[in-house]
């Protein structure tokens, strides 16, 4: 296998809310092209880990190296870092005051200082990719959840990020919409996008991920290739968790 560039390296990551330690000494790394699913029960710290990675939560201790530079260092420009690390939220978080097109253009224009025409072309390219280009004039509130999430993915892609973080992107959707969104994500994975996905969609995690991380009680209980974790889990907690999903 060819040498892949390491994008993120997380070491000794701890996050506490008061005396409650949500993440306990987390270690893991993301290489270019990896599609990593983070699975585990609610409250196991999956989302907090993702939110620490783009600094929506400030880690209590430990380091997150991005191409070798520690982004938890106070001197790091976190805005430039976040440009490179896209995030898709459970509740979409599209900007309610802007149209679909403007949602995808505002980042490239205001943050990346791109020309309007260039930003529009970028936005249209990615809205086409998620099959939402028909809706460019709509406001988010006029769209279904699945449509909103696809726009949110296009908005993140329009920033041309190096890695995309997905925080339970389908948890607020009905089964049909889940399909729409997962299709888009599968396409992205096949195209070689580096992705870090917190999800409860086990079949998707099994089929699409190159690597699976199982978290329980704030620690990484088990990790490995999709075949290893789903096919032959080693730890009791992993077996117990996966046994609840009958269709696997």
């Amino acid at each position: 296998m060819s040498e892949k560039e390491r994008i993120l390296e997380i070491t000794h990551l701890v996050k506490s809310f008061g005396s409650h330690e949500v993440l306990k000494d987390i270690h893991f790394s993301v290489d270019q092209g990896d599609v990593i699913s983070i699975i585990g029960a609610s409250g196991s710290g999956k989302s907090t880990l993702l939110r620490c990675i783009n600094l929506l939560e400030t880690p209590t201790s430990g380091s997150i190296l991005y191409h070798g530079k520690d982004i938890t260092d106070a001197k790091m420009n976190i805005y430039a870092y976040r440009e490179k690390v896209g995030m898709v939220f459970q509740n979409f978080n599209l900007f309610h005051n802007l149209t679909v097109l403007d949602n995808c253009m505002v980042g490239p224009i205001k943050v990346k200082k791109k020309k309007k025409e260039e930003a529009r072309e970028l936005a249209m390219t990615f809205l086409h990719k998620v099959d939402m280009e028909q809706f460019i004039n709509a406001k988010p509130r006029q769209l279904s959840g699945g449509q909103q999430q696809r726009v949110a993915i296009a908005r993140a892609l329009a920033m041309e990020p190096e890695i995309l973080l997905f925080d339970e992107p389908t948890s607020a959707l009905d089964p049909q919409m889940v399909g729409e969104v997962l299709n888009v994500m599968t396409t992205l994975a096949e195209e070689g996008m580096t992705m870090l996905i917190v999800t409860h969609e086990m079949a998707f995690a099994r089929d699409v991920s190159s690597h699976v991380v199982f978290m329980a009680d704030g620690v990484i209980e088990e990790e490995g290739s999709s075949e290893e974790v789903f096919g032959n889990p080693q730890k009791e907690k992993t077996k117990d968790f996966l046994s609840r999903f009958r269709n696997l």
């Binding site: 783009n54 929506l56 805005y79 430039a80 870092y81 976040r82 440009e83 896209g86 995030m87 939220f89 509740n91 978080n93 599209l94 900007f95 309610h96 005051n97 802007l98 505002v106 980042g107 205001k110 943050v111 990346k112 949110a152 908005r155 993140a156 920033m159």
Partner: peptide
Amino acid sequence: PGQMEGAKAIGMTHFQAMVNV
């Protein structure tokens, strides 16, 4: 608060997020 998080996630500063979102 999700609006501010969405704005931060694409790299906006507090000021940019305030003005645009």
